[in-house]
Design a binder for these strands. Structure first.
Length: 872
RNA sequence: GGGAGCUUAGCUCAGUUGGGAGAGCAACUGCCCUACAAGCAGUGGGUCACAGGUUCGAGCCCUGUAGCUCCCACCA
């Protein structure tokens, strides 16, 4: 092994080996239980960020764990065409060449988009490889590949035939920049400081008027009524009469509708059915016409009269001026309100009536809600189920058509001769109604999430009855961020239920956002994003992975910081060096199995600790508590194995006793090998590199069996006894440090103890680790001489003669403090045991433990009191 | 308007069936002892936001309060 931990030496090499030898491939094996994760497909818009890195690390850790446990583990990778997001990028790209979409034409543009896709898909897959992702590349999918397209077509036609997809004129969110419709979830609201314009609408042929208040005066050209609350006494007489829209000069009725809130504004509201969702509803109730006043690009249309052609905001300014001049403007008040923005280009969304395709949601939502209620799908943590219910229960029909080119084209044709609408699984060549060849396909494409919703089964061959679907579906786990519950998770659930008749996944592990070190969202505009590749380049993939998992709890946001990665890199270095220590000592020797050697107390202790860690790591991983599992392994590896056990084996390793050396090496190797297996799912590279160097191992650790808890190796009593030896070592070390005695200065130890055998058996360890030269068993304090520090422990009292370094007064104070501490503990235990409620209701195990503690403290107190006598 | 989360050591955060408060980083002291100074040994530091309640026992369960964060709704 190399002397220095240098991930560059092996990460790439190992990954290639894994991939080339087919380790990632999931081949159906009916003797095994499948475990499936389908990767949330990254968008082909660019490269992966820290959020992806975490998402991916979580999945890889789980899938490696399951694979080692003997499951037929499939992690299916893929990418998403991300219709609108990618189209925006490609448009930007061609703009640099002075080109527009229109200039390229649909086909030319799509060619460019496919080129873009190829480039970024490759880049993303490269990044996933760098992270160590053990996904099955032979199944790499793309939401617009043949497989997925076939599924999309099948689903669309089926829903269309069931009348769950319909086309209609409804109010939708329109992005004037992307010039496309958006679904409700694609709109992000942000509070903005706007204005409230109070405007007079005069009664027809009268000088009476109704004052209305609006934040968007330019829409008044589309007003078709003014609504007042039927219970509002102020406007009772106006109902049924007409008012005239200022400037436009058109007369519209005053209608009574509950929508008008008497408390808000002036209590009278202008109704613009074509440009406001609430007004649209009022319009339906009151049978009002709907007048569009804007074009697709956000400029005013002919209905705005002389303002035709002006941008909506230019028109707003000019119109307000005209209203003011005409005496119609009563006042302008500042008004904070939420404004919808396009989630891709951030421009202000315009509600507009438009003819679009929709998925009817109510029938689909019900079973999807029930599936979560019935625990067929389990959110981790549970609280996300509530968020899901809330959305699902109030979901509106899903607008799925987009006025874009990059995406799945809507599989509907229109006959220009007879007007028929044709939706079939294969492309029609003539109109089935009239035989005409004059049929044209709908120009629009589908919402990108329409194909994502089918991802768990479209990637496995749906609609065909494939072996994959039969074996791997439903999948076992979905790992994703809480920010796409509505976009994606919920839509997969109802789609899976509708088309597969089964939920798409059992567990949904939610994770939070990766924020920067100040807790801010990582974003392009802030420029605070950190590129995972740069981090990997500097520290290695294992360090990055470990830093992303350490200390995370499901569903919680985390912060990325270089300091954290650095700390993890130190851990890797620690693992590397410890392994190097073990392996160099193994060189040239036959390493025995632990069953063939005589185990020391220390050996049994570390093996016992290992068993506990195996048990707890398995338990926590099964619950997807990866952060906790990391901590368990970190502590075991660093504290137990490196700081204690390796140090404990040194006397044997450097000694002359061959049998002792064999014993130590057997245990060192045993623990190291198991540790590499336990750590492998988290940090795959370093563990495999080390594992291959451990004598007797074959092949890669990634295909080794995950360690299983073995109760025969738990050695509970031996481990507890050995903890007493460790206490002695710690006490001597502390005694030396407290008195500023150099650790290298060897001291003599005098011990009063009833556990002489235990101490004698571990004499070498105590001498080495405590920095002592000899141990003498004594029966009274006097034998230790005058200037001795006394440490009272559960195993006995240790005296350390330290000559001038001992200050009698300070010793007395220290012992006094010890006495107080032990007395307090004693009282606590005693209090519990004298508490009737505790004795009655607490579990027996706990009572016994308390009793044992009480006895221990009583004994210690006695000894301390005795010691104190020496200072009185 | 509705909902969720957070508040634990100077900083970042764990703490999952309620049973003696933890880690990393930072700080302080002392150490190059043949795996590792990217290290070792030791030390200090917390009325677990606040107020009640349930319980033999609460960081954890319940109620309320405050501050911060986020999501949903959109009253024009």
């Amino acid at each position: 092994m190399e002397k220095k931990y240098d991930p560059k030496q092996f990460e790439e090499r190992l990954y290639k080996e894994w991939e080339n030898s087919g380790c990632f491939k999931a081949v159906r094996d009916d003797k095994k239980v499948p475990f499936t994760i389908v990767m949330p497909p990254p968008n082909v818009t660019g490269q992966l960020h820290m959020g992806h890195a975490m998402d991916c690390t979580l999945q890889d850790t789980v899938i490696r764990f399951k694979r080692m446990q003997g499951y037929c583990a499939l992690w299916l990778p893929g990418t998403d065409h991300a219709s609108i997001a990618t189209e925006v990028k490609v448009v930007e790209e061609i703009k640099k060449e002075g080109l527009t979409k229109q200039q390229l034409g649909r086909e030319g543009f799509l060619e460019r988009a496919w080129e873009w896709k190829d480039k970024y898909e490759q880049r993303i897959c490269g990044q996933l490889r760098k992270l160590g992702s053990s996904c099955d590349w032979s199944r790499l999918a793309f939401t617009m590949d043949e497989r997925c397209s076939k599924a999309v077509r099948e689903v669309f036609v089926n829903l269309y035939n069931k009348k769950l997809i319909y086309r209609g004129d409804r109010i939708i969110n329109w992005c004037t920049e992307c010039r496309s419709a958006l679904s409700d979830v694609e709109v992000e609201y942000a509070e903005e400081q706007g204005k409230f314009w109070h405007i007079k609408y005069y009664l027809e042929n009268s000088d009476k008027y109704i004052e209305i208040a609006t934040t968007r005066p330019e829409t008044m050209f589309g007003d078709t009524a003014v609504a007042v609350n039927p219970a509002d006494p102020r406007y009772k007489d106006f109902i049924g009469k007409n008012v005239v829209i200022p400037v436009a000069g058109r007369a519209i009725p005053v209608v009574a509708d509950e929508h008008a809130d008497m408390e808000f504004g002036t209590g009278a509201v202008k109704i613009t059915p074509a440009h406001d969702p609430n007004d649209f509803e009022v319009g339906k109730r009151c049978n009002l016409p709907s007048i569009l006043v804007m074009n697709d690009d956000g400029t005013m249309n002919a209905n705005a009269g002389k303002y035709e052609g002006q941008d909506r905001y230019v028109c707003r300014d000019n119109l307000v001026k005209e209203l003011e001049e005409g005496g119609y403007l009563v006042k302008t008040v500042p008004h904070a309100h939420n404004v919808g923005h396009c989630y891709r280009c951030n421009s202000v969304v315009e509600p507009m009536v438009s003819r679009q395709w929709f998925v009817k949601m109510d029938e689909l939502a019900r079973p999807a809600i029930n599936a979560v209620m019935d625990k067929k799908v389990i959110f981790i943590p549970e609280r996300f189920a509530k968020i899901y219910y809330n959305w699902m229960e109030n979901v509106k029909d899903w607008c799925i058509s987009r006025q874009l080119w990059w995406g799945h084209r809507i599989p509907v044709w229109y006959c220009s001769d007879c007007g028929a609408e044709i939706c079939e699984k294969t492309d029609p060549t003539v109109c089935p109604e009239c035989g005409s060849k004059n049929i044209t396909q709908d120009e629009d494409v589908l919402d990108t999430w329409f194909s994502s919703a089918l991802w768990p089964f479209s990637t496995m061959g749906y609609p065909d009855d494939t072996s994959d679907l039969e074996y791997f579906y439903p999948t076992d786990l979905l790992v994703t961020g809480y920010d796409i519950i509505f976009f994606w998770v919920s839509r997969m659930i109802f789609s899976g239920l509708e088309h597969m008749r089964k939920v798409p996944f059992r567990d949904v592990l939610m994770h939070g956002l990766v924020r920067d070190e100040k807790g801010r969202k990582m974003s392009k505009s802030l420029g605070n994003g950190v590129d995972p590749l740069e981090v990997i380049n500097k520290y290695g993939a294992d360090s990055l992975r470990f830093s992303l998992l350490q200390g995370v709890a499901p569903g919680n946001d985390t912060r990325y910081s270089d300091a954290k990665v650095e700390a993890c890199a130190n851990f890797m270095n620690k693992i590397w060096n410890a392994s190097r220590f073990v392996l160099t000592n193994c060189e040239g020797r036959e390493i025995r199995s632990i069953s063939e050697v005589k185990l020391t107390a220390a050996d049994k202790w570390i093996i016992s600790r290992l068993q506990a860690v195996i048990r707890d790591v398995t338990l926590t991983l099964n619950k997807y508590e990866l952060g906790v599992a990391c901590q368990l392994l970190y502590d075991f590896m660093w504290s137990d194995f490196c700081d204690w056990y390796i140090e404990l084996t040194k006397p044997a390793l450097y000694g002359a006793d061959g049998a002792k050396k064999d014993g130590a090496l057997a245990v060192l190797k045993f623990v190291l090998e198991n540790a590499m297996k336990l750590l492998h799912p988290f940090i795959p590279f370093i563990t495999d590199e080390i594992y291959r160097n451990i004598p007797g191992t074959q092949g890669t650790v990634m295909l080794a069996e995950f360690p299983r808890y073995n109760s025969k190796l738990a050695y509970k009593k031996d481990a507890a006894a050995f903890a007493g030896v460790m206490d002695i070592i710690t006490a001597v070390r502390a005694a030396k440090t407290e008195r500023e005695c150099a650790p290298s200065k060897k001291v003599s130890l005098y011990i009063i103890s009833e556990q002489k055998r235990l101490i004698s058996a571990n004499e070498d360890s105590i001498l080495k680790l405590a920095g002592a030269k000899d141990i003498t068993f004594i029966t009274s304090a006097e034998e230790a001489g005058e200037n001795a520090v006394a440490k009272v422990l559960s195993t006995g009292t240790v005296f350390i003669p330290m000559g001038d370094l001992v200050d009698a007064e300070k010793e007395r104070e220290r012992l006094q403090a010890e006495l107080e501490r032990v007395t307090a503990e004693l009282r606590r235990a005693d209090g519990k045991l004298n508490n009737a409620g505790f004795m009655q209701k607490a579990p027996k195990k706990l009572v016994d433990e308390e009793r044992a503690k009480l006895e221990k403290y009583i004994a210690m107190r006695e000894k301390i009191l005795q010691q104190l006598k020496n200072y009185n």
